[in-house]
Design a protein around this nucleic acid. Structure first.
Length: 469
RNA sequence: GUCCCCGUCGUCUAGCCUGGCCAAGGACACCGGCCUUUCACGCCGGCGACACGGGUUCAAAUCCCGUCGGGGACACCA
């Protein structure tokens, strides 16, 4: 059995969107699962639309998702010399012919066909001409069969039959000499010895044309698998108006690459009831057999949940290193070493769905100028008796070993002394230490904050306490 | 318009190929409860689907036909 080879072949006319990322992922997973190779090829034959920025965006996205390719990236724009011999071969064998019809003329044919209720297309007027010289301005068209059918064997949806009369003689080489997509993709996939072409369903109707060319060129036809498209919430194809569709936008929003891969894989593919997969599990279990054939709706809420599942399984030291750049970005001081940071992030590890959300929720660990939430102050701090907080601060000051259990002991002591329930003390203290009424557990938070800062914040808050009962 | 693909809870899906184990399972979201120092987490429970109509069969989500609905393709774009 020959080596399994898959490929991802995006056209660089924008960022890598969700759908493209999933196609890349499926190709990557299939290759890894089968022990094959994954090739990256940039389809930039359209010079007008292809931009260096797009290429970079695609590369960045793939790197972020850690979809490592084994070969490439190959650029079609650099391979034009490769294609000419194939065009010549088809010209020589009569599989293709020269055509001098102008785009305007072809356009008219299309309108005419449409008006007559036929599929719009070229009418073949240059098919049998022999008077066109290679030097005349012309395109090269592929001569499609006048009858018969072409079947596509698709690994996801089975056999699909197309009537050859459905196809007009399409252009494989433009007037300027550059080859077009449907032709180039055949040559490239053949030359790169791709065994499995996994791509979006929007390519399904191109496939029979390509198969016809494989035959005309006497090349072996690869396996095809057309994965269903990803839709927006309203059921139409995912686009900008559905919100963020570029993969890197999710990186910037604080999603983990493995979470993104997990979510994307599960959108259209399944392995029983399992929802959460590590990269290794994805590779181990992925197979085209379990890729569904119906389109799926992209659900940001589920993505969020998947991200949360991955986030909470991260070792706190790893989480800390993910979070560190975000802290620097915000120019917050780091009052401790990496070990301290790990402890700090551990307190909110199960309280945030994204890295960004997580970082933004713990500004008080870094910045000593507390931003008080007026409502929280009014509701909790202002109602506390100054004596209570003073008492707590005094007791806390005497703690030698600043640890969670010791802090808790002090709280218990003060609570008993004042005959109060924890809530009556914890909430005012929470506001004093963080400025708000929401935070991790009061003891663990205080432990992370450190004795000096806790005492300082308590002292600073006492004037705000105006309770009398 | 023509051709192609698709159709299980709001969403992602299991089941469909190889009919009976399905009075259709899991997950997200939503609702309620428990836990509780806040917020979360967690746990328990609830809501909720085989698009429709025929047919085949002792038996159909599963097989066949039709209808309807959604999507895609018909470029000197990819």
């Amino acid at each position: 059995m020959p080596e399994i080879r898959t490929r991802f072949a995006p056209s660089p006319s924008g960022f890598l969107h969700i759908g493209g990322a999933r196609t890349a992922l499926f190709n990557y997973l299939l290759a890894r699962n089968l022990g094959g190779k994954f090739v990256l090829r940039i389809e930039d034959t359209d010079r007008e639309r292809s931009t260096p920025e797009s290429i970079q965006a695609i590369l960045d996205s793939m790197e972020w998702l850690e979809l490592a390719w084994d070969e490439g990236p190959f650029y079609q724009s650099e391979r034009s010399a490769e294609y000419q011999p194939y065009v010549q071969r088809m010209l020589d064998s009569g599989a293709a012919y020269r055509c001098t019809c102008t785009p305007e003329q072809v356009d008219a044919m299309r309108k005419e066909a449409k008006a007559a209720g036929r599929r719009p297309g070229y009418n073949g007027s240059c098919r049998n001409r022999t008077d066109i010289a290679a030097t005349d301005p012309h395109v090269v068209r592929f001569r499609t069969p006048d009858d018969g059918q072409t079947g596509v064997k698709d690994l996801i949806r089975g056999g699909v039959l197309f009537e050859n009369t459905e196809f007009d003689d399409f252009v494989i080489c433009r007037t300027d000499g550059t080859p077009t997509y449907n032709f180039v993709v055949v040559v490239d996939d053949a030359e790169m010895r791709i065994t499995h072409v996994v791509r979006g369903e929007d390519h399904l109707s191109n496939t029979p044309k390509q198969i016809l060319m494989y035959h005309a060129l006497d090349l072996s036809v690869p396996e095809f698998a057309h994965v269903p498209l990803i839709l927006g919430t309203d059921g139409s194809r995912l686009s900008k108006r559905h919100g963020a569709t570029g993969v890197t936008a999710y990186r910037d929003m604080g999603y983990l690459p493995d979470a993104m891969n997990n979510y994307l894989a599960r959108l259209g593919w399944s392995h029983g009831d399992q929802e959460i997969f590590s990269r290794a599990e994805l590779i181990e279990h992925f197979s085209l057999d379990h890729v569904g054939s119906s389109a799926g709706v992209f659900d940001p809420e589920k993505l969020e949940w998947v991200n949360f599942q991955h986030l909470k399984e991260l070792p706190s030291s790893t989480l800390a290193s993910e979070v560190k750049p975000l802290i620097e970005e915000r120019q917050w001081p780091l009052p401790g070493d990496d070990g301290w940071l790990a402890k700090a992030v551990a307190t909110v590890q199960e309280r945030a769905k994204t890295l960004v959300e997580l970082v933004n929720s713990i500004k008080y660990y870094f910045v000593d100028e507390i931003e008080f939430d007026p409502k929280a102050v009014a509701k909790h701090l202002a109602k506390a008796r100054p004596a209570l907080l003073t008492d707590l601060a005094d007791q806390l000051a005497g703690v030698e070993d600043w640890s969670e259990p010791n802090i808790e002991d002090v709280f218990q002591y003060v609570l008993t002394k004042h005959e109060l329930k924890l809530g009556k003390l914890a909430q005012p203290v929470r506001v004093a230490l963080t400025g708000g009424s929401v935070s991790p557990g009061i003891f663990e938070m205080a432990a992370v904050l450190g004795k000096d800062r806790v005492l300082a914040r308590l002292q600073a808050a006492i004037p705000l306490a105006e309770g009398t009962d």
